[in-house]
Every structure is written in structure tokens, then in C-alpha cells.
Write a protein that binds this DNA or RNA. Structure first.
Lengths: 243, 243
DNA sequence: TCGCTTTCGCTACGAGTCGTAGCGTAATGC
DNA sequence: GCATTACGCTACGACTCGTAGCGAAAGCGA
């Protein structure tokens, strides 16, 4: 929660975390931080009720109890506003140590899917990504506030797996970075495609099958689902399997 | 090429290939098939120049040399029009036999990426997918005219690989279908994510690395260096197609 | 308490888009 | 000829956009 009416906001216009070194205190009336949270919440509510295309800034302003001009003073348009509103949904994304690489991957898949299942994320995220194909500044905003945090989970999970001895250490740092980018695109892309394009649920069964594919590959585990135990061809799972 | 002015179009409004058994010939003046192709081409041109958000139906009509009302008589709105316009881009998608599963996968990845690299596909496809999260009819239209054709390639590639002995035959048809859906989401999702979210090129290097991951899994081949160096605690089922 | 500065709420505005209605005309089949 | 449908064109109300201008409010320092 942001402290209320104490310090100026100035995170919204300049893009989450950018925190460009502007003078800490400016003369004049400070911007209401409460208005920021109200606007972003109103934006998500409007996304749920109306979806991206029918969402208007006038409507958002009315929901937030704020003048339309105030909205335009803080965000340059619909795209930037929705990015910030959706980005807050990803604050809950984290990677608790579940004891094994398999469990960690399954966990992050399900967490990511849980966010994507929310209607305000569905309709908002894809729309701004679509817009970002013609707007470099918007893409950078998305990358900094949403994508980068997801990628960090991949790096964290790999480091943890290497520490456990489940994955070999990396000799070439450049190749390691490429591999991490690849893994990230595969995981995030597959989950998004399953949830939004195929429009089928990302449940534990799917997450388990996907994780098996990711670790063992096609040639090993095609069409041999676990007989009755929910264990794949993997020999061991160290951590306690979340009851 | 569609034959010109001979038979009524009636594919556009009812969705590519649906071909509902309407009376083959209706009384009155038939719809101009030439207008259809002109409108769809104009839509793609407008997507390139303006992008999704700034594309207006009035502009498309003007480009196509057609009255705006004609456009509304054939398509119910922007979404449906763009789906049909983008769907034609996927007509070139096919799966020539490249001799091995590895080569087939790499080939389809690069083909798919080549389509996604075109600006009219970039900005249009993601936008309609975003809209489809709140419009079941639109999602079905996308599925029938775009997604299903991609999925067929996966099935074809697997059948070919099984015939070569590169993949085991499927005993349970239901599990086989689930696996095919999984593979499809992984491939299509990863390519889309790489191209649109990460905004980095899908070149042969990336396609090769991705294919390697897909076939062998993470535990085997992370990175280019010799696979013999570090071995994990996991048993490796390699190479030979287990019957 | 008084200025100074910036934000806020409000109203109003021109510009642009939307989707539809109405009309006369063109193209097909009977 | 007839009936039926598609087409081009014009016009329209409704809506959204993004901005401008204004007076009031909320901070800070003297």
C-alpha cells in the first residue's frame, strides 16, 4: 500500500521503477497518491466489465471519482494506463522453494496461469502487447514493469536447480543468457497460448505434462502419462509435495 | 485466386470453410468476389500503415474503392474483418518433408516466424486474440480459420515422425490428442512470445536451440558445449527411438 | 499569515469515428 | 418484363477523444 498524501507519486508517468532522479520534493501541491491507486483499480474494474476495446478514459475517471483531465495529466493515453494497471497484478508473482526443479517449474506455471485467468489480465495484457508492436516506448514499459519480473523467476529457478545439482553449471555466460531467454519464451509463451488462444484451463495436469516435456523432451516422454502415480519418469522429488 | 464475379462469395460472413449448406444459388445480384479480395488486401495495407488501433473501417473502404456500407453488409465489425484478412496470410503455411523430425520442426518454426514477422500479422493477430477473450464467436472464428490449420501441421509432423520411427506409436488416442495439444501450445506460444513480447528475431539459431530443447529437454542439452561434460542426477534416455 | 507553485475538478469545445437509414441504381434469375 | 439482392452515395445522431481555460485547493518557505 502506498502511503497516503504524504509524498508525491511521480512513479506513474515515468514508469514503475524507473525512478529517474528528479528533485525529491517539488514546490506546489503534490499529486494525490490515493488518486493513483483509485485510478488503477478503476481501470481494472473497467477491464473486467467492458474489456479493452470498450474501455474509455472518461469512464475510468468517473469510476475513480476523478476528473478526466487528471487522468490525462498522469498518463499519456489508454495504453500506458492499462500497462500500469495490469502490472500490479504481477506483484504477487514469486518463486517459493518447492524443493525440486520440477516442483518449482510447476509452481511458477500455475502462478502465472492464475494471473492470466483473471479477466482484467486477459483482455488487457494481450491488447497492450498488440499495441506495443508499433510503439517502442510502450514495449519498453511493458518489458520493465511486467516481463522482466517474470524472467527473473527463470534465473532464480535455474540458480536454485544448479545449487541442488539438478542442472549443470554454466561455463559460457553468454550461452547461459541465451538459454534463459529461450526457457522464458517457452514457458511464458506456452502458458499464454494455452490460456488465451486455445482457451483451455492451465490446471495441474497440464502443468505436470508441460514440465515433463520441458525437462525430458519429446523423445522420452511422449504419450506415456504416469500409470497411476502422479510421478513422471523422474526418479525423485525431494520436497514435500504440497499437500 | 478466387474466380471473379461468377459465384457469390458468402465465405466471409460465415467464416472461412464453414460453408454452411445455404442454397447454392440465391436470387438477386450476387456479391462481388473482387470486392472481397480488395477489402481484405486494403485491410492488410491499413494494418501495415496504421496498426490495429488507428485502423478505421471508413479508411479501409476508401482504400478498397468500396462504399463503407458494403463493408458493414459483409462483416459485423473490425474484429471479424481483421481475422479474415490475417487468416489469408496463413495460407502459405505447409509442412514439406525435410527428412527428419528435427528438420521438420525447425522448418515449421521458421515458417510461422516468417508470417509473424510481417507487420500486418503482428499488430492484427494479437489484437483480435485479445478481443476474443470476451467474444466467444470471435474466438471460434479465429480457431477455425487460423489456429486449426497450425495444429494440423503438428499432427502431420508427428505422424511422419512415427512412420520414420523417430517417435513411439500412440496407444491411448486420448492421451495422444492431449500431447498434440501440448506440443502445439508450446511451439506456437514460444514463437509468438519470442517475436512479439521479447521482440527478438526468430532466426535459425534460435529455432535450432528451441528444437533441441523440445526434443531432448532441459536436463540434456542446456547450451552448445559438449553434452558429455556435466551430467545431472537424472538418467538420460537418449537418441534411439524406443520402440 | 502571505505569496508562490502545482494540482484538481469542472465545463466546454472541435475533430473524428461509429453504425445505420434511406434512396436510386446495377446485376442476376425467372 | 418481373422479383430480388447488392451496390454507391449521402446524411445523421451518438459517442469518444484530447485539449483549453478557469477558479479553488494543497502544499512549501518567508
Amino acid at each position: 500500500m502506498i502511503s497516503l498524501t504524504t509524498h508525491p507519486t511521480q512513479t506513474s508517468r515515468y514508469g514503475r521503477g524507473m525512478q529517474s532522479r528528479t528533485p525529491a520534493v517539488r514546490p506546489g501541491r503534490p499529486r494525490s497518491a490515493a488518486a493513483d491507486t483509485a485510478i488503477l483499480a478503476a481501470t481494472r474494474a473497467a477491464l473486467v466489465e467492458l474489456g479493452w476495446s470498450k474501455l474509455t478514459l472518461g469512464d475510468v475517471a468517473a469510476r475513480a471519482g476523478v476528473a478526466k483531465t487528471t487522468l490525462y495529466r498522469r498518463w499519456s493515453g489508454k495504453n500506458e494506463l492499462v500497462v500500469d494497471a495490469v502490472a500490479e497484478l504481477f506483484d504477487e508473482l514469486e518463486l517459493p522453494d518447492r524443493g525440486s526443479l520440477t516442483a518449482d517449474i510447476e509452481g511458477v506455471i500455475l502462478q502465472f496461469a492464475a494471473i492470466l485467468a483473471r479477466p482484467e489480465a486477459k483482455s488487457g495484457l494481450m491488447a497492450v502487447v498488440a499495441e506495443s508492436t508499433r510503439d517502442d516506448a510502450l514495449r519498453e514499459r511493458i518489458r520493465a514493469s511486467i516481463v522482466e519480473r517474470q524472467k527473473l523467476l527463470v534465473l532464480e529457478g535455474r540458480a536454485r536447480a544448479q545449487q541442488r545439482g539438478e542442472l549443470p553449471g554454466e561455463s559460457d555466460p553468454e550461452a547461459a543468457a541465451r538459454t534463459a531467454d529461450l526457457i522464458f519464451d517457452v514457458i511464458a509463451g506456452a502458458v499464454v497460448h494455452r490460456a488465451l488462444v486455445s482457451a483451455e484451463p492451465v490446471d495441474t495436469d497440464w502443468a505436470r505434462a508441460f514440465t515433463g516435456l520441458l525437462l525430458n523432451g519429446l523423445t522420452a516422454s511422449t504419450g506415456h502419462p504416469p500409470p497411476s502415480s502422479h510421478q513422471t519418469s523422474f526418479p525423485r522429488r525431494t520436497g514435500a509435495p504440497r499437500e
